[in-house]
Design a protein around this nucleic acid. Structure first.
Lengths: 162, 162
DNA sequence: CACAATTAAGTTGTGTGCAATTGAGTGGCG
DNA sequence: CGCCACTCAATTGCACACAACTTAATTGTG
C-alpha cells in the first residue's frame, strides 16, 4: 500500500535540495574568489552586466538580472559607496536612475578577467558541459516562470484571490 | 586582439546567472505552492528531512541540508512557533538540541504530498530529466565544495589559521 | 489644464545564508 | 581535581531576495 506519493516526496527532496545546494555552493566559491575584488556574488552579477553595457537605468538592470528595486537599490548604493558606480537621475525622465561605471569600476574589469577561469577550474566542468548545463537551467527557469504566472497561488486560473 | 578572456567573462555571466536565476525561479514556484501550507521554501526543506527522520539533533539536520546553526536556529524557532516542531535539549548531551515533529507537523505531511506533483508539472520535466539534472547538480556541488576547501581565500593551502 | 492611471525608485518588514563570536557543556590529560 | 581543547547551539552583523507600500514623475484622457 505504498502510494507513489511517498516516492514523489523523496524525489522532490532530492531535486529541490540539489538545486538549492548547488546554488549555495556556487555562491560560496564565488565568495572566496570575489573577496579579492571586494565584491559579493550579486554585486559581481551587476558588474558583469555593467561591463557589457556601461550605462543602464535601474529598471533595465533589473530585467537583465530578474531583480527588483527592493534588492537593487541598496546593492547599488553599496557599489556607489565603494566607488565603482555612479547613480544619477535621468534628466529626461526623473523617475529613472541611470547607473554608470566609474573609472574605478571600469578598471576593476581587468582584475575580474581571471575570475571565470578560476571558477571553471573549481567546477571541473569543461566549456561544453557548462554550456549544456546552462541551457538546461535556462529551460527550467523559463518553464518555472511560465508556471508561476499561470498559477500564482496554485488554484484554478479563475480564482480571484490576491 | 580580442583575448578569449572577454568570452570567458561573458560565459561566466551566463552560467552563474543561469544557476542563480534557476534557483530563484524554483524558489518562487515553491513559494506560491507552499503558501497554502504556511511554509517557506527552506522551512519545507527542513520538514522534508524531518518527515524522513522524525527526530534529529540540529547538527544532523544541518549536515543534511548543509546549513549551520546561524540559519537553522531562527528558522526552527519559527517552525516551533507555528506548532510544527518541538525543540528540547538532549538530556544525554546538553549541548545538543533535539528537533522532533509535533502531531501537527506529522499531519502536515499529508497535505504536502501533493506538492511534488505540482512542482513537477511546473517544470515540464519528466522524472528521468529531473533525475539527470539532479545528478548533474550534485556533481557540481561536490566539485565546488572540494574546491572551496582547497582554496579558502585563493591563497596557499598551508596557512596555519585556526 | 485637471485628474486618474501608470511607472520607476526607494523604503519597510520578514526570512534566509553565512562569517564571526559567545556561552554552555563535554572529554582528555596531567 | 584543574585546566584546556573541542563541540554544539545561539546570537550578532551584514547582505541579499521579495512582497507590500510610499513617493515622485509621466502619460493618457476629457
Amino acid at each position: 500500500m505504498n502510494t507513489p506519493d511517498d516516492d514523489w516526496l523523496r524525489l522532490d527532496q532530492q531535486i529541490c535540495f540539489s538545486l538549492h545546494a548547488a546554488s549555495r555552493a556556487f555562491n560560496g566559491v564565488y565568495r572566496g574568489i570575489l573577496k579579492d575584488l571586494g565584491l559579493t556574488y550579486p554585486q559581481y552579477l551587476v558588474m558583469l552586466v555593467l561591463w557589457e553595457h556601461d550605462e543602464l537605468p535601474v529598471k533595465k538592470l533589473g530585467e537583465h538580472l530578474r531583480l527588483d528595486s527592493g534588492t537593487l537599490s541598496p546593492l547599488l548604493k553599496r557599489l556607489e559607496a565603494a566607488g565603482l558606480v555612479r547613480r544619477e537621475r535621468s534628466a529626461r525622465d526623473e523617475r529613472s536612475v541611470e547607473v554608470r561605471l566609474t573609472e574605478e569600476g571600469v578598471a576593476l574589469r581587468r582584475r575580474a578577467l581571471q575570475v571565470p577561469r578560476r571558477i571553471a577550474a573549481s567546477t571541473g566542468f569543461d566549456t561544453d558541459e557548462i554550456r549544456t548545463l546552462r541551457a538546461r537551467l535556462d529551460e527550467l527557469t523559463t518553464a518555472l516562470d511560465a508556471a508561476a504566472l499561470a498559477e500564482p497561488t496554485g488554484g484554478a486560473p479563475g480564482d480571484g484571490r490576491s
